[in-house]
Design a protein around this nucleic acid. Structure first.
Ligand SMILES: [Mn+2]
Ligand SMILES: [Mn+2]
Ligand SMILES: [Zn+2]
Ligand SMILES: [Zn+2]
Lengths: 140, 140
DNA sequence: CAAATAAATGCAACAATGTTGTGATTATTG
DNA sequence: CAATAATCACAACATTGTTGCATTTATTTG
């Protein structure tokens, strides 16, 4: 099961012309297995003891994966990026939900906001970032 | 003009039962004068030389002003809070625009998003945080 | 398979932003 | 003016992320 994900991860990495290193494969497998968007720290904790990576290496691997569009970064109000594998649905813009109690972040399907936003004259829209804050099912 | 704002700021602070210190008044006057939401650092730079405040004092003053609802904080993707005085319009929820080039942040009037968002079962909505990213008139 | 090479890694140092604790100062009250 | 609680300044710390550079390694090539 996790082995399957490792295989998938390796494929995804090779398809993008990157080196299939243990670190990258492990990180991407973790993100593929995860339902939520998780932080750098949480990824570190999920890595098996025998293949801990340097903080910087982890940051750079995540940066590479994001560049190649295999994962995406989510901004949060606690100053920590969260990362999540790109599934079909998430490849285009979508909103996020963050629990104000336990801080979990999940990706929501749609982005039900009109693209032609009423901006001041001369302003150009590039991207909409939307986070719904509230309580998750566990914290309600 | 700026003197007028100082007077207004002092009134707002006293109305909330706080001590009218030079620091608080100066900070709030700066935020009242500003069209955009600005960072801690930018506030510091706008303070006259003779009344520079300690970083921590500035943080705590901003915290107090936000608690009293005289200003509001804006989350951004660059890990720095931005602050803006609460005018009538901004007292309720609104969206923000951030220029991806010069990083300026302005408050937008409305929040044209349906409040009854389609969340997973058991989830409860508290607040919607929306940032439109793009290019401002200067950077276009 | 072995050597060559570019890519990835590990480590140390640094930067930005924000927080906590505590003793000194000050705005306000009477 | 004196008393007092609120505010402030300073030092120390925490978290998250970045940069430079020497070392290691995955992949390619012969
Ligand atoms: Mn997402
Ligand atoms: Mn605002
Ligand atoms: Zn929760
Ligand atoms: Zn701009």
């Amino acid at each position: 099961m996790l082995n399957q994900l490792h295989h998938t991860a390796e494929d995804m990495i090779r398809h993008n012309g990157g080196r299939a290193t243990a670190g990258r494969i492990g990180i991407l497998a973790i993100l593929l297995a995860e339902q939520q968007a998780i932080t750098h720290r949480e990824i570190e904790q999920r890595l098996p003891q025998e293949q801990q990576l340097d903080r910087v290496t982890l940051y750079r691997a995540l940066e590479w994966l994001a560049e190649k569009n295999l994962i995406h970064k989510v901004t949060s109000d606690d100053r920590a990026w969260r990362y999540h594998a790109n599934r079909d649905v998430q490849s285009h813009q979508h909103a996020h939900f963050k629990c104000t109690c336990c801080a979990q972040v999940i990706c929501l399907d749609k982005l039900p906001v009109e693209r032609n936003w009423p901006l001041p004259a001369g302003y150009r829209l590039q991207e909409i970032e939307l986070t719904v804050k509230g309580l998750c099912a566990n914290c309600c």
